[in-house]
Amino acid sequence: MDTSDTMTHDVASIPAMSEVPRGRIAMWWLVASEIVIFGGAVCCYLMFRFRHPEWGALAAHTSTPMGALNTLVLLTSSLNMVLAHSAAERQDIRAACRNMIMAMLLGCVFLVVKAIEYTAEIRQGYTITADLFWSFYYLLTGLHALHVIAGVTAIFFVMLSASKRRHLHRVEMAGIYWHLVDIVWLFLFPLLYIAG
């Protein structure tokens, strides 16, 4: 049945029920789903870490200075990303792009440091099959590194469009993802490096 003649409201615009932009809601659901993916893996690691007290000696072979350097790199990269977000809200395209480039560069620095670490560890014979600890180490850091690559790629495309003043709100979305990658590392670092 046709009820269109009974409309009383303005229908020229698509109304949004909540004030939160839909992209932001979607990003937070993505974050929630990533929390359970990484969290699931970390839970498994923790249980086996409790089961195998001897892993403390193995964890001593990971390089704490390198890990700390990478923490610093990712924290700084996150800072750049949030500065890019606030610049994008001010419509300051140059500052936004500059900060995104910095964030990407630092993301690449992270990967390079990680690659150097992997190389040193594999040289010493600590491969993914050497011990269950190393299996978990490569699983967790490898999954995280894949997310770093994905994050850098996302920031790159967001930057391309932002430099043409298009889709500026996406800077924030890429930022939310990038901070998530940062947070995951904030937990992996103590789990795998310092609290050995």
């Binding site: 359970v36 993916i37 969290g39 498994c44 099959t129 269950l132 299996s135 699983l139």
Partner: peptide
């Protein structure tokens, strides 16, 4: 679905590693 699937994704990666690289998860 969103909240439950995460740990299995991690578990499936481990299973794949066990199958292909012969890790011991």
């Amino acid at each position: 679905f969103v909240f439950a699937v995460g740990p299995l994704i991690a578990g499936a990666v481990m299973l794949l590693l066990d199958r292909t690289l012969h890790t011991g998860f």
